Computed example of a mutant assay.
Amino acid sequence: MNTSQLAAVPPSIDPPFWRGLKWGDHLFAGLVLLAGGIAFGRYHALMDVYEQAILLAAVAGLIAFGWFWKPIRLFVPLCGLLALGGVALYGDDLARGQSAFWLKYVLASQSAVMWMCVLFFLAMLMYWVGLLRRSDTADAIGSWLTWAAAGAAMVWFFVRWREGYLIGADVGHVPVSNLYEVFILFCFITALMYLYYEQRFATRRMGAFVLLVVSAAVGFILWYTFDRQAHEIQPLIPALQSWWMKIHVPANFVGYGSFALAAMLGVAQLLSSYGVLASRLPSYDTLGEVMYKAIAVGFLFFTIATILGAMWAADAWGGYWSWDPKETWALIVWLNYAAWLHVRLVKGWRGNVLAWWAVIGLLVTTFAFLGVNMFLSGLHSYGSL
């Protein structure tokens, strides 16, 4: 082909992304828009302009997420239907939670979270059976149990939200306000992130390690429930009566979930490097790659959450930053993972040093989340054990 012929060939242009959407994508988007429209129609009078904007962003974000990751197109509608079933069974009478069979044993928030705990424990056991016995069947069962546990957590979220308003208009709030609620959010986010990487890298052999940290959180939830009665819905304290909470807390816990997932993969990578379970685990490089992607996502969301937290502080206390212990330790966490990403992307570091760093990073993050509230005092000293 000569020069004139080459010039006559039109350049290739990628078609717009919407040309690649299938009927399932459009159906999912329609369902989400319908649900969002119904929610807006029923509750817009109770929402300020910021909360309406959050609803709009949540609808758009969920549609985009469903287009990006196909399993969400089935997972979200199924969980939504179950949650709507629980809300409908309640009607306007909270006492029905003790008499209606499906509420009492399945769909009431406390029933749903108990199912979540059991399913996560079973999933962890099946993943370990699959890892130790090289059983694809056990791995598949572990994966399905993890999906079911995440579904129970999502049902819990919406039903508990409704239960709060059944107690009283001044009590109801989005359930991300205390340690009990955010630990369930942590389990949900970490599980979904793991399930994405499980599909993306076509391996279920990471689940045994990731479900360990989720199960540890489940153990805390059970202790906190039965020892401290933390599952009881309480009114929000004044410091948390803000629409900022609805976006700051979930963004934070995408970060926490990502860092926890990366740390457990760091443990797996370290064991593999010393020849422990090396033949059963994904390759050393695969574990490192998933760890890197998880930290990158977590760092992005933790950065967003930190910015949102500063804006919330300015709105509530008149200043963006006060060097409160919680803020200081959040900065330490941010700097830790910024340095981790820097040495990997710029300096080209790989291997065990980054795995150890990810594991130690989770300890730093855990202290920033729990330890500060337990041992230090400050403006954020409202979430204690």
Rank of each mutant, 00 (worst) to 15 (best):
M114S: 11
A268N: 04
A148H: 01
Y43Q: 09
A60F: 06
M114E: 09
M114C: 09
G41T: 00
A191Q: 05
T203M: 07
V59F: 08
P282G: 04
Y382V: 15
F299Y: 08
F259M: 08
K293T: 03
V214F: 03
V9W: 00
N373S: 12
L78G: 09
L122V: 13
K293A: 07
I167W: 03
I332D: 04
I72Y: 06
F186T: 13
G275Q: 13
E51K: 13
L376F: 05
G20R: 11
V359Q: 02
W356C: 09
V174E: 06
L179N: 14
L192F: 02
G24V: 09
A153Y: 04
A358I: 03
V155A: 05
N336E: 10
A45I: 12
V118N: 01
T365G: 05
Q110S: 15
L84S: 07
S143K: 13
A263M: 03
A358T: 02
A150D: 03
C187R: 10
W340E: 02
K347I: 03
L166K: 12
T306Q: 07
G151T: 02
A60M: 05
R205D: 06
F157N: 05
L89F: 03
L376R: 03
D139P: 08
A148Y: 00
V32E: 03
I141E: 05
L122D: 06
P77G: 08
V9Y: 01
A7D: 08
F253R: 01
V359L: 14
V59N: 02
W356F: 12
K22S: 14
E289R: 12
A7L: 12
L119V: 00
T190E: 12
L222V: 15
F101V: 12
V87E: 02
G41C: 06
L21F: 15
N373T: 07
N252C: 14
A216W: 10
F121D: 07
F375V: 15
L125C: 07
Q269G: 12
S384W: 10
L56C: 11
M206V: 06
A35P: 05
V32K: 09
T203G: 07
R134E: 14
R204W: 01
A339H: 06
T225P: 01
R228L: 14
C79F: 03
N2T: 13
G36T: 09
A35F: 01
K347F: 12
S381K: 09
M114K: 13
L185Q: 07
L300R: 00
A296D: 10
H380I: 01
A95V: 14
L89V: 09
G80P: 02
A149I: 02
I304A: 02
I360Q: 08
Y382A: 14
A8V: 02
V106K: 01
N252H: 11
A112I: 04
Y43L: 14
Y197G: 06
G298K: 01
Q269S: 14
V267M: 06
